[in-house]
Design a protein around this nucleic acid. Structure first.
Lengths: 344, 344
DNA sequence: GCGCTTTCAGTAAGCGCTTTCAGAATGTTA
DNA sequence: TAACATTCTGAAAGCGCTTACTGAAAGCGC
């Protein structure tokens, strides 16, 4: 920018007839004779002076903009977590730079690199990692010098290979609890709408669910498991694929609520009623699912808290020698989308 | 940050045994002997060098972080618009700094001030203005020197008093069209869930609706109009208030989809069915309303485009002498939440 | 009233980078 | 080979700010 040139501290100092140092001190609330301070403040106001944050950062003052990177702000899950982050950031007088990668690893790394260049005091990564471990490693390589330089990194629900402070939902336990609840309703034949295998979120939720089923003597037919991206349309398509191929289940577990929403739409479009023909359960408890008809059964995660805790972690020094891991448990919430079934 | 000190260009230059200038040129892709360039690049990679964005900005290189301010990232409306903004920003290799004010004017002004300090090349304001015109004026005062300094400001759906480039949804026309459609279904008695009177979004949508009704000889009973904040809970409470006071309408128009969602929940909690007992219509067409049961009738705004166009506006020079205003029209979409009614 | 400490303003040295300018090195033409 | 044009590199001057460091003025005890 700067087609015209800006008002600088020097202009203020000259207008107030004091030295640069005095002007700086007055503006930063350090001890200065009241009379001089007033003159400086008045001059600054008159000239609509705004300090140049870059010059300030360069000269040593610490910089108050933290970076938050997520896959897609448009996704209610990320929006909710980001909301939590922003609340804590705001309370600490920090600005946040929120980036959406749209699931493009290159863009994610570019974001980290720019944040690094900005000398942001903290970077938060929200959401599952990448399918390709090479990207995960590239990210790690980008993060390493940042951490070495004193940067703080915290992560929400991310691939564990990243050795940084993390807030991790108890995906496995949550999915297991859900399985138990669903078994309790009498379901024995399940279908699962899964996501990319490489994501720990997927392996944990899917694994927890499958293992709990197995423990109860119920096996999950691999033909009833479909993969799709973690989006509404991904859920819709996965469900449609399953329907086309032949659905053989009384209950569908979608690994995320967003997918579950898509699944319900697909079911409806195929003339099947939820929960009368098929029960559907999700995971996350994004706010909207309460207002669906029927309301979605799911595993409720404290989404806001996920973000808040991550931000808090990034803001406090890690005094221990190991990375901190905060596990947050989910709670099964059975609502209208899952019905009882006669166990046969 | 910087507990430890950072790798600087000087370190790279020394490692590559060239001058600072040469290192800078090599890194910025300017003409340098291939051999030297390789040496510099290799050294930079070896040292994990990241240029300091502040130093760079200070030294004159333009800064690539734009600011976007909205009320609440958690609201699907803002998320959708912000998504559009980010897409265009990403395509132009810009980082966006997304701030959530949570409807606090002071925070909004603080954001603008920080963005100004950062010398962000552009600031985007998304969403309705404030109820108190004094805040609006304070904001204007903050924006003025920014604009004078060459900053770009664009606004989506904002109080018109701000004399900056704007993307404005055709709220009045959209609401009028909706009124016509609803009349066409036979409705004659309406209730409206409105927002704060001071917002132009409210006066336009409400005014357009009421006037069109009036033109058709239908008057809107003031007792059937309730105000509430533009949130899901705001809609829920407004609807509940109306229900308690006595609903006398066959159709409820909520000024935003988010409110409509709350209204539907309130209706349901009162044992009323949508649309059999009452029809409900919203405004905006946020993505989720398609997946509600019944799907919500609404006025569809091109939300993504709102953000995209605003970003584009902020990116292109305004060659004319007047501020640019881009009006985007909405389209009535009748879905399951509105039913036909015998006009009596 | 004289040395002493204590305030407080001013001078100047960077922070890490870009860029102008001048000079060295190379290539071109007669 | 001399004279000149053409690259390309390096030295150095800032960008706007913070912050030692320095020195002047003022307050203190004796």
């Amino acid at each position: 920018m700067q087609s015209r040139t800006h008002v600088t501290l020097e202009d203020v100092a000259r207008a107030a007839d004091v030295s640069l140092a005095t002007a700086s001190r007055a503006l930063n609330g350090m001890r200065v004779t009241p009379q001089l301070r007033d003159r400086v403040l008045a001059a600054a106001a008159r000239l609509a002076y705004t300090p140049n944050a870059h010059a300030r950062a360069l000269a040593g003052a610490s910089h108050r903009t933290v970076g938050v990177i997520c896959h897609d702000v448009t996704d209610p899950y990320f929006a909710a977590v980001a909301g939590g982050v922003m609340r804590v950031a705001g309370a600490n007088d920090l600005l946040v730079m929120l980036g959406s990668t749209f699931r493009d690893p290159e863009r994610e790394i570019a974001y980290v690199s720019m944040l690094r260049a900005e000398r942001a005091p903290a970077i938060l990564l929200i959401g599952s990692g990448f399918e390709d471990p090479r990207w995960e490693r590239a990210l790690e390589a980008e993060l390493k010098p940042y951490l070495d330089g004193g940067g703080r990194v915290a992560v929400v629900s991310r691939h564990r290979s990243l050795k940084v402070d993390s807030v991790l939902p108890e995906n496995r336990a949550g999915a297991a609890a859900l399985a138990r609840a669903l078994l309790g309703l009498g379901h024995r034949r399940f279908a699962v709408l899964a996501g990319p295998r490489a994501l720990t979120t997927v392996t944990d939720r899917f694994g927890g669910f499958r293992d709990e089923l197995a423990a109860a003597g119920v096996t999950l037919d691999p033909a009833q498991v479909v993969e799709g991206p973690f989006t509404r349309d991904g859920g819709y398509q996965a469900m449609t694929a399953l329907l086309t191929r032949g659905l053989d289940a009384t209950c569908v577990f979608a690994l995320t609520d967003v997918m579950a929403i898509g699944a319900c739409a697909a079911l409806r479009d195929h003339g099947l009623a939820v929960p009368d023909d098929v029960s559907v359960a999700g995971f996350d408890d994004i706010p909207i699912v309460r207002d669906l008809t029927p309301a979605l059964s799911t595993v409720a995660l404290p989404l806001h808290q996920l973000g808040e805790k991550a931000m808090e972690m990034a803001l406090t020094e890690n005094t221990g020698r190991r990375r901190r891991i905060l596990r947050m448990s989910g709670e099964v919430v059975l609502r209208g989308s899952t019905a009882k079934v006669d166990a046969r």
